[in-house]
Design a protein around this nucleic acid. Sequence first.
DNA 1: CTGAAAGCGCTTACAG
DNA 2: CTGAAAGCGCTTACAG
Lengths: 364, 364
Amino acid sequence: MSSIDSMRNRLCKLATSIELRQDIFHNTTGGGMGTETKRTTIYDIAALAQASPSAVSSVLNGSWKKRRLSKALADRVLRIAEQEGYAVNVQASLLRRDRSHIVGMIVPKYDNRYFGHIAEQFEVMARDQNLFPVVTCTQRNPELEFEAAKELVSYQAECIILTGATDPDRISAFCAASGVQTINLDLPGKLAPSVISDNYTAARDLTHLILDRCATDLKWAGPLRFVGGRRDDHNTSARIAGFEAAHADRSITIPEGHIMAQGYSAQTAQSVLDDFLPHAPTGIFVNSTISLEGVVQWYASLGEAQKWVRYGCFDFDPFGSFLPGNVGMVEQDVVGMLRRTFELVGKQTDATINILVPCRLLPF
Amino acid sequence: MSSIDSMRNRLCKLATSIELRQDIFHNTTGGGMGTETKRTTIYDIAALAQASPSAVSSVLNGSWKKRRLSKALADRVLRIAEQEGYAVNVQASLLRRDRSHIVGMIVPKYDNRYFGHIAEQFEVMARDQNLFPVVTCTQRNPELEFEAAKELVSYQAECIILTGATDPDRISAFCAASGVQTINLDLPGKLAPSVISDNYTAARDLTHLILDRCATDLKWAGPLRFVGGRRDDHNTSARIAGFEAAHADRSITIPEGHIMAQGYSAQTAQSVLDDFLPHAPTGIFVNSTISLEGVVQWYASLGEAQKWVRYGCFDFDPFGSFLPGNVGMVEQDVVGMLRRTFELVGKQTDATINILVPCRLLPF
DNA sequence: CTGAAAGCGCTTACAG
DNA sequence: CTGAAAGCGCTTACAG
């Protein structure tokens, strides 16, 4: 202990009343936000409990039994800590400990059923394993993603889950250099293991479902149109492959212009369809709920022609089953994906690991 | 600098090649997750750049101009830091600095349009102000809320936004003792300023909208039913007051059983209506999108009787306008609420401050 | 203008 | 069984 620390202790011992002690140490400081009271430290509690800072630290971090401190001491310290509203200083504690137990996650959006669910379940499951989750939302912005990952490394995160990251490999490379594990979720990467939905199979199943409904309801055999997403996006291209495979299963040829993967916004989906007023049966594979908003907007504008249209959507929304014309949706298995992800956390992993998690097809 | 530190420095100076230096300091340690490389520190960079740790620190934290270090030195240090993949140790840095710039938020859910949007905008707006946002999702669980707030205090958060907290006052009291500011968002509290939606006015407006539509579409003048939420919940009770006021505006008496605020789940909303098959005009004020799911489920089961029903919902969902029978929704002004909230962050605030933010009524 | 030194609040190996 | 002491990786007042 430094000489100032011991002086502090001696002063505390002299200060018999809490009031006096507060006069000495709880002086308000000017910096920071508002009027800031100096936070209670283990030294304050040690003085109050007539114990050493070491003993207080042991009691507060739970190692007191191992160190065979007396129950009486422990109770006393705990009571005083409670009274004083003590909260450990994580910065000081982690600086000294060898593990942070922090698991980070970057996620593109919260304001989205799928990613919102992922972030929420991630926190629940991390806490269940005594890990401390820190999630941050990076708006699909590659620079922000990288900065956020760097910040998580700075916070001594032990593992970072990269959810739907636009440039996961750059982040994985940086993290690896600091000995921080990364795992790709939802979109794969080359430098870390990946856990993703089985987009191909689910898209193939959904395509068959829409084709079946078109056959039943409209007495029509396809081919369907594909709306939403981007061809160069991994998930969209896997879904297009499934879409094509289902057509191939039925020996249906897909004409050139039927794959309309021109972007993710509702606006784009709607404008792609804008001039299209069907006079004959039409089936649409809608890629993502955000594109669905555009398709439904368009559908609502059709009036009588609605009878010619059936569609299904890859991704789930609880109101989906109430949308007229919607024959089914694909729900991704968020909990399943996270379970597989957590199996990898803290393990020696291989960048070639690529786990495909099946989705659920929900016919309406 | 300690004697070991200076020995380190001397060793570094002897270690002319990067490889040799790595042999000395980049030894893999067993602890933590996977194979962990010792992270690069300012001492490593100092040795590599032939500079003092103080100088490296200044360069890395941007204070080098103020300290008038040479541009050449700064460039050299920055280049080496980049090469080595240096990331500052926040724990060490914050332990020494007087401000953390951390702003925390607890939020009940991410998996919800409203709260998801709040969390997302909070992060964006915090970063815009050079604050570091840390959001955590507490599942409407009072114990978890308190633990999460305590953790944020431990992380030296300067301010914590309590969003929809079930027991905000307990948290505010604890935080105040540590000099940490709290602000209530969405639900008010007694011990900290509150920023909440003007539930009363918006509910009154929505009630008038539904009554108007019932008059036009069904030639019927009310009274409406109120479904969802809990009477003892602040927001629900304000909405019920608005609901009642609108009826009073039109001199309509609301019968006893018409206010069915028996809980938030979709299940509850549906079961409350389950045995009700309308044979005459009916209008429903739906409290929250989660209750809306139940109401729409019920509505879908009505068949022919759908023609007797109109409803509107407090809260917004992008698919809401496509739901048959739905005449309009209330959208809460998330950005407006957060803007008012951030105006309070870091300011000396008064617990009696109670800011009401108007909502937008969206008629369909 | 620049670097050595002190110290932030903890934790734990170590000595007694 | 228990406490003094060292040290985690930074930052900055201070001395030169």
